[in-house]
């Protein structure tokens, strides 16, 4: 017979944290990644290592609020909840709409997308571009890390066993003035895992680039972002000169190293990533007419 499985579902976050402090557990939020990753064959429960601890019902993890210009998003907000929340920026909503399909969006959480750390996680390119910070909590207190430091590799994150991701903080996101795009390239129009993801942000002041950021998904073990390359464009006049665009594209050409897999090819991924970058940089939308 099946061996005994321990599972916890506490009413409060503090109880959850103290259990996590005692014992290494598998955290389940919406479970849409966990249940697939540890899936058994038909008719048998998944084989999840460690005791499991359910967190998606914890109200402490489901709040969305504004703190000055920063936006705080509870880790266990489901995609559907975020789509209905007026505080969530439109580009993030657009990215969320490309994720899976309604039933998955009713369960999958933003925190899960981050902690799952898949190269194809669809919210990740935007979160990188927003310079998202993550609030992690344990019995020992809180700490805040940049998302780019937290995600370390394919399904590898810098989380201590006793920590829970509590909030995702998008600094200054509620400030006006930036032009942000997200593009997902999948094999079909719903229920598709990204072959390439791209997020770009640009803020123009006085016809010059004041801030610019890009992140690429599904073209490497983690999101590809380079502050050094972004810096090359600061202060450049808009519209950008062809040579400026070419320089940035060439720089990314050097650092994007995708792979072949069952979904696409390395050549395709790279070419499309650079196409989307080039298009973004030459796009008319943010430029003075």
């Amino acid at each position: 017979m099946a061996e005994k499985i321990t599972a916890y579902r506490f009413d409060r976050l503090d109880q959850t944290l103290s259990q996590l402090n005692k014992e290494n557990c598998s955290i389940i939020a919406g479970g849409t990644d966990v249940m697939v990753l540890h899936k058994s064959r038909r008719g048998v429960p998944p084989k999840i290592p460690n005791p499991v601890i359910f967190i998606d019902h914890l109200s402490e993890l489901k709040r969305v609020y504004q703190n000055q210009k920063d936006l705080h998003i509870g880790a266990c907000c489901t995609y559907s909840e975020l789509l209905e929340d007026p505080l969530i920026p439109l580009p993030l909503k657009n990215a969320i709409k490309t994720i899976a399909a309604p039933a998955i969006r009713n369960r999958g959480t933003l925190g899960g997308n981050i902690c799952n750390a898949s190269p194809a996680g669809d919210t990740l390119p935007l979160l990188y571009v927003y310079n998202a910070k993550l609030l992690l909590r344990s019995v020992n207190g809180d700490r805040v890390v940049a998302i780019s430091d937290f995600i370390q590799g394919v399904r590898r994150v810098g989380r201590q066993h006793n920590e829970i991701l509590v909030e995702i903080i998008l600094p200054s996101v509620l400030e006006e003035g930036s032009h942000v795009v997200f593009e997902k390239v999948g094999n079909r129009n719903a229920d598709a895992i990204a072959k390439v993801g791209f997020a770009g942000l640009i803020r123009v002041n006085d016809s010059r680039v004041e801030d610019v950021r890009f992140a690429f998904g599904a073209v490497g073990p983690t999101m590809v972002r380079s502050v050094d390359i972004e810096k090359k464009l600061l202060g450049k006049p808009i519209p950008l000169a062809d040579s400026d665009v070419a320089e940035v594209v060439a720089a990314f050409d050097k650092i994007i190293r995708p792979i072949d897999d069952q979904r696409s090819t390395a050549i395709y991924r790279k070419k499309v990533a650079l196409n989307l970058l080039r298009y973004f940089l030459s796009s008319k939308q943010y430029q003075p007419n």
């Binding site: 479970g31 249940m35 697939v36 998944p46 499991v52 009713n106 369960r107």
Partner: peptide, 14 residues
């Protein structure tokens, strides 16, 4: 809410 029951561990629906 519409959900896929194949992805739901029953411990989470108490």
């Amino acid at each position: 809410h519409l959900q896929n029951s194949c992805l739901i561990p029953i411990g989470s629906i108490d």
